[in-house]
Amino acid sequence: MIPSSFEYHRPSDLAAAIGLLAEHGDEARVIAGGHSLIPLMKMRMAGATHLVDLQGLGDLKRITVSADGISIGAMVTQAELIAHEGLAAAVPLLREAALQIADPQVRNLGTVGGNVANGDPGNDMPGLMQCLGATFTLEGPDGSRDVAAREFYHGAYVTARADDEILTHIRFAPPAGGYAYEKQKRKIGDYATAAAAVLLTRNGGTVASASVAMTNLSDVPVWSQAAGEALAGSDCGDEAVRSAVTAMLADIDPQQDNRGPVEFKRHVAGVMLARAISRAWSRA
């Protein structure tokens, strides 16, 4: 389990990090917590001759929470995200979900930025960020640009980020209403067989708005606009939940693997979404 050789860099600011990526082109890769990249490098499914470690970039460790918006630095670990009381109060969805990611040791090093930037369909944060309508900030040699989480993922490990860009921050408006993240997995530390993120707001006995995203049920995270629309304006009763599940099932495209055949994954996806809707509604 030895990866191929690389040269190691630990820049102390963002400009130096971007400079290293510009200098070494596609031979360079950024490493955050390394808990997706190192396993791939050990199996030689990923390689880099220059590894640019972002641990020296303190600005990327910051979480800011205000009524105007929330910003999470890419180098914030899952454990730091869970421990941040202000963030948990403003976006309880994220703490609920992060506690279901991997195990304590992995959460101590695995970062939110790595989780969203990597483009692994099994990662939980991409779907959550699509559910929240988040925006990712990318910094490169030509400056900074923002890309919506809902437009960032093009395929497994293929994203809108260019090789010489670094995903530095995740930003979104604080969500209102009820929330839930439901994840079915075979064991602690496993990726989801299926997972559902739901946010919804209530107006009396009616759903005012809903956002639904699914994890590990396609080669990209799936934000199901149709499922959200099926819930909006409904009483969130059995029939509305069934319509939302039907709409979601039309948007996902799971593949058979060691987590089960396609039929099973579609079944679990439906169960996860129905549970998430019901729990989000009870909290709205």
Binding site: Y8, G34, H35, I38, Q105, V106, N108
Partner: peptide, 12 residues
């Protein structure tokens, strides 16, 4: 912090 030493490069 608790970490798994098989998933940390010594350089890190």
């Amino acid at each position: 912090k608790s970490v798994k030493a098989c998933t940390v490069f010594v350089a890190q």
